[in-house]
């Protein structure tokens, strides 16, 4: 067992963890932060994507013990986030989800696309989404939602 101290959703957290426990399990089991979903637990499906030190990572193949000192943010911690607020409305408007299992990870990647690649075209958006598996929507609604938020932000940037 190893002691760790980290920040989760802006709050300091101290815990003693087994090295084999991955960050996704730590968030769900120690902290009861269940917005993060665990799908494949081998880094393929992207459902468990969270932000570590501001960038998306797969929480199932990062061990909690290795996050000592890190700043972790889950979907719960992005409720007031401007981009996530826009994405939430757009996902609903464009039917970007059905069962919702992939959605938390999809929101993390979508937020990354909108902030890092504001001018990405549809092809690039689809490429960037290839690490998040969705088996309901066929991606059309998700891509439309991301493009919608890109456009909203672009027209606002362009406004005087």
């Amino acid at each position: 067992m190893k002691p760790i101290r980290l920040t989760v959703n802006g709050k300091p957290v101290s815990a003693v963890v087994e090295p084999r426990q991955h960050l996704g399990d730590f968030l769900r089991e120690h902290l009861l932060l269940t917005a993060t979903h665990l799908g494949c637990e081998q880094g393929v499906c992207g459902a468990c994507t969270v932000l570590v030190d501001g960038v998306p990572v797969r929480s199932c193949i990062v061990y909690a013990v290795a996050c000592d000192g890190a700043d972790v943010r889950t979907l719960e911690g992005l409720e007031e986030d401007e981009v996530v607020t826009q994405l939430r409305a757009a996902m609903s408007r464009h039917h970007g989800l059905q069962c919702g299992f992939c959605t938390p990870g999809m929101m993390m990647t979508a937020r990354d696309i909108v902030t890092r690649l504001p001018d990405a075209d549809e092809k690039r958006v689809r490429e960037e989404l290839s690490g998040n598996l969705c088996r309901c929507t066929g991606y059309v609604g998700i891509v439309d939602a991301i493009r919608d938020v890109q456009e909203q932000r672009k027209s606002r940037r362009g406004a005087p």
Binding site: R58, T109, E128
Partner: peptide, 8 residues
Amino acid sequence: AYRAVRNR
């Protein structure tokens, strides 16, 4: 791979 993998 994917961006989340490339970050790490």
